[in-house]
């Protein structure tokens, strides 16, 4: 290749390389335009702060447990361990819980009784929707017709019967109990349930929800069905 041709090829390849790199830059670093306004950003910031505070609280709790382990003598360590175990059982819904909350009665509507309609079980979709409304607030615990609803529970329609974790929920009337972490949270949820369309949704299925006023003491039963442990393994200290 002649020297002159060499230089031309070099120049052209240089341009090609440059354009390629530009394309690479453009494809890899283009970020979508941020179109949020001040209030949207403030809202996001507030939710992040909430998560931050929740995490801090969780860390504080774990630190306290750790300090209790370290501070207690050998004999007491078993007690601390038992406490932690009880706490975990309670968190998982295996222990009875008492706290501020309210009772919701699900009953057939007077019209459907007067007109002699057949009373059908609550549909699984409707109950799942109701639980989603309750779970919009964190820390609420539920008991549906005497069956504790835990994080591992499921709702299914089996042969036309509504079941919670495999146990049949009776045909209305039955009660749903809700326990909240505090009285304020319970009142907030109560007001939220009164203002949402959940009552109308139940009424469409010929059911009415009677929500009682929040009280200080509502007791939920613990889940008695046991649980399947598929992922956790015992840690052995070497």
């Amino acid at each position: 290749m002649k020297q002159k041709t060499h230089w031309k090829f070099t120049l052209i390849l240089g341009i090609v390389g440059f354009v390629l790199a530009l394309q690479y830059n453009t494809m890899n670093t283009t970020s979508p335009r941020d179109t949020r306004d001040l209030w949207a950003i403030r809202k996001e910031l507030s939710s992040e702060k909430k998560i931050h505070s929740e995490l801090l609280e969780e860390i504080r709790g774990i630190d306290q447990t750790l300090a209790a382990y370290n501070a207690s003598p050998e004999a007491n360590a078993a007690n601390v361990l038992q406490d932690t175990l009880d706490k975990l059982y309670k968190q998982a819904g295996f222990m009875p819980t008492t706290g501020p909350g309210f009772v919701i009665e699900v009953a057939p509507s007077p019209e459907s009784i007067a007109l002699g309609y057949e009373i059908k079980p609550v549909s699984s979709e409707l109950l799942a929707w109701f639980i989603n409304v309750v779970n919009q607030q964190q820390g609420n615990e539920l008991e549906i017709d005497g069956k504790r609803f835990t994080t591992l529970s499921w709702i299914r329609d089996i042969n036309g019967n509504l079941t919670v974790s495999g146990e049949v929920v009776s045909t209305p009337p039955f009660n749903i109990k809700v326990v909240s972490p505090s009285k304020e949270a319970s009142e907030e949820l109560y007001n939220q349930l009164l203002t949402t369309t959940i009552q109308d949704e139940f009424y469409l299925d010929d059911l009415i929800l009677t929500i009682s006023e929040p009280t200080d003491r509502i007791t939920l039963q613990g889940w008695t069905g046991g649980f399947e442990n598929r992922f956790l393994k015992e840690q052995t200290k070497e």
């Binding site: 060499h6 230089w7 090829f9 070099t10 120049l11 052209i12 390849l13 240089g14 341009i15 090609v16 390389g17 440059f18 354009v19 390629l20 790199a21 530009l22 394309q23 690479y24 830059n25 453009t26 670093t29 283009t30």
Partner: peptide, 28 residues
């Protein structure tokens, strides 16, 4: 020499940090 030119062009493009607006991406 041509390969050196290619390398020079690529490194110049990467280091320059120039970005083509999305509208002109097709042209590029």
């Amino acid at each position: 020499l041509p390969l050196l030119g290619l390398l020079l062009g690529v490194s110049l493009g990467l280091l320059s940090d120039i970005q083509i607006p999305q509208v002109y991406n097709n042209y590029l």
